[in-house]
Amino acid sequence: MTGYLTTHVLDTARGCPAEGLKIELFRLDGTGRTLLKTLHTNDDGRTDEQILPADAFEIGEYELVFHAGAYLDASGTPPEDPRFLNIIPIRFGMSEQSHYHVPLLLSPFGYSTYRGS
């Protein structure tokens, strides 16, 4: 099997997919990080393409950065200054050639993630 990476963002406060949320993927290397891709979620809270497709997949450490504040602002969540959750970084490792699915369950005051399928 060849590895690849996907995500899904659900707005648990509103009970719907988080549409239009900006996501950045970084590869981590020691103390450095390299931006690999920037995507936005579609109306299903997913990206239209794999975040890291099989032809670009490499075992290693990565970071997904979810721009939650801008999404919350656009979705009509009452504003705060500053927002409790603005930028959400999730660092993780991929150690085998497999499908890695890193979803984000989001609300204005909390989030969770896990390795999905």
Score class of each variant (00 low, 15 high):
residue 103 P to R: 00
residue 2 T to H: 11
residue 60 G to P: 15
residue 35 L to Y: 03
residue 108 P to S: 04
residue 110 G to I: 00
residue 69 G to V: 05
residue 80 E to G: 12
residue 92 F to K: 11
residue 85 L to I: 15
residue 20 G to L: 01
residue 86 N to R: 13
residue 16 C to P: 01
residue 99 H to A: 10
residue 51 I to T: 09
residue 58 E to H: 11
residue 93 G to H: 09
residue 13 A to K: 12
residue 99 H to V: 00
residue 72 L to H: 15
residue 113 T to S: 15
residue 36 L to N: 03
residue 39 L to F: 02
residue 105 L to E: 12
residue 80 E to F: 09
residue 96 E to P: 01
residue 105 L to I: 00
residue 34 T to R: 03
residue 66 F to S: 10
residue 62 Y to I: 04
residue 6 T to S: 11
residue 2 T to Q: 14
residue 38 T to D: 03
residue 30 G to T: 07
residue 100 Y to N: 08
residue 13 A to W: 08
residue 47 T to L: 12
residue 114 Y to G: 03
residue 25 L to D: 04
residue 51 I to E: 05
residue 96 E to T: 09
residue 89 P to T: 09
residue 4 Y to V: 00
residue 74 A to Y: 07
residue 107 S to Y: 04
residue 13 A to M: 06
residue 98 S to I: 09
residue 71 Y to N: 11
residue 20 G to K: 02
residue 44 D to I: 00
residue 93 G to A: 15
residue 78 P to I: 06
residue 80 E to W: 08
residue 1 M to E: 13
residue 26 F to S: 05
residue 71 Y to P: 14
residue 4 Y to C: 05
residue 14 R to W: 00
residue 45 G to D: 08
residue 3 G to M: 09
residue 29 D to R: 03
residue 34 T to M: 05
residue 16 C to H: 04
residue 84 F to N: 04
residue 116 G to L: 00
residue 91 R to N: 06
residue 57 F to D: 11
residue 65 V to D: 05
residue 109 F to C: 06
residue 20 G to T: 00
residue 45 G to L: 05
residue 52 L to N: 07
residue 26 F to R: 01
residue 55 D to N: 14
residue 67 H to Q: 15
residue 112 S to R: 10
residue 74 A to V: 02
residue 64 L to K: 04
residue 110 G to F: 04
residue 103 P to E: 12
residue 10 L to H: 02
residue 90 I to C: 09
residue 7 T to F: 09
residue 18 A to S: 08
residue 1 M to C: 08
residue 74 A to P: 11
residue 113 T to R: 09
residue 94 M to F: 06
residue 109 F to V: 08
residue 108 P to D: 03
residue 90 I to F: 07
residue 82 P to G: 14
residue 54 A to F: 12
residue 80 E to S: 14
residue 69 G to Y: 03
residue 67 H to I: 05
residue 95 S to D: 14
residue 37 K to F: 02
residue 54 A to L: 10
residue 70 A to L: 10
residue 43 D to H: 09
residue 67 H to F: 15
residue 84 F to E: 10
residue 102 V to M: 15
residue 111 Y to V: 00
residue 58 E to T: 08
residue 42 N to G: 13
residue 73 D to W: 01
residue 62 Y to S: 07
residue 97 Q to G: 11
residue 34 T to L: 08
residue 43 D to R: 13
residue 30 G to P: 15
residue 62 Y to K: 06
residue 26 F to E: 07
residue 63 E to W: 05
residue 109 F to Y: 13
residue 7 T to P: 14
residue 13 A to G: 07
residue 116 G to D: 06
residue 98 S to C: 11
residue 10 L to Y: 02
residue 16 C to V: 10
residue 5 L to N: 12
residue 71 Y to D: 10
residue 23 I to T: 03
residue 102 V to W: 06
residue 79 P to N: 08
residue 29 D to P: 01
residue 111 Y to M: 03
residue 76 G to L: 12
residue 96 E to L: 06
residue 79 P to G: 06
residue 59 I to P: 07
residue 114 Y to V: 01
residue 30 G to L: 12
residue 101 H to T: 07
residue 22 K to W: 04
residue 101 H to Q: 14
residue 19 E to M: 02
residue 87 I to P: 09
